[in-house]
């Protein structure tokens, strides 16, 4: 009986040690920011090859400038690789960056090729009196 309890205890300890070993990698995923609090970005197929890139950002406090500095659109090529086909900046889309706010939203449409896959990379940007921060996010992939 005592031996059985000892064996059960040993097995339990071994089990706990195995569980304890693998979750550490997940902790490394956490990323904090003095500027950003929430992101949301996606690409949606609108039909006839047209796609929409939407992004939304909430900052921790009021920013003098908030939004995205650049948005890149990537298109899938015949060899399976993705190539950057379009770059948007504040010069081409005026409301990509907004002023004196804690929330910025923008929707950009792009005429792609029907049946081709696309995704976007959004470079978020936030600036206040003490400095600025960038944060890069990659959206989902859609077929236009």
């Amino acid at each position: 009986m005592r031996l059985a309890i000892q064996k059960a205890g040993t097995l339990f300890l071994a089990f706990l040690m195995i569980i304890a070993l693998f979750p550490t990698a997940q902790a490394a995923e956490a990323r904090a920011s003095y500027y950003f609090s929430r992101f949301e970005d996606s690409v949606t197929a609108l039909g006839n090859g047209k796609i929409a890139v939407e992004f939304d950002v909430v900052s921790t406090h009021t920013m003098t400038t908030l939004g995205a500095s650049t948005v890149y659109i990537y298109e899938k090529q015949s060899d399976g690789s993705y190539e950057k086909v379009k770059t948007y900046t504040r010069a081409t889309v005026s409301n990509m960056l907004q002023s004196n706010t804690t929330h910025a939203y923008c929707c950009i449409t792009y005429q792609g090729k029907a049946g081709t896959k696309y995704y976007a990379v959004v470079n978020y940007y936030a600036k206040d009196a003490s400095g600025y921060e960038n944060y890069k996010c990659t959206t989902n992939t859609v077929t236009a």
């Binding site: 902790a27 956490a30 990323r31 904090a32 920011s33 950003f36 609090s37 929430r38 992101f39 949301e40 970005d41 996606s42 996010c137 959206t139 989902n140």
Partner: peptide
Amino acid sequence: GTDSIFLKDD
């Protein structure tokens, strides 16, 4: 929740 990311420290 499919596309939203909330920033947090560890």
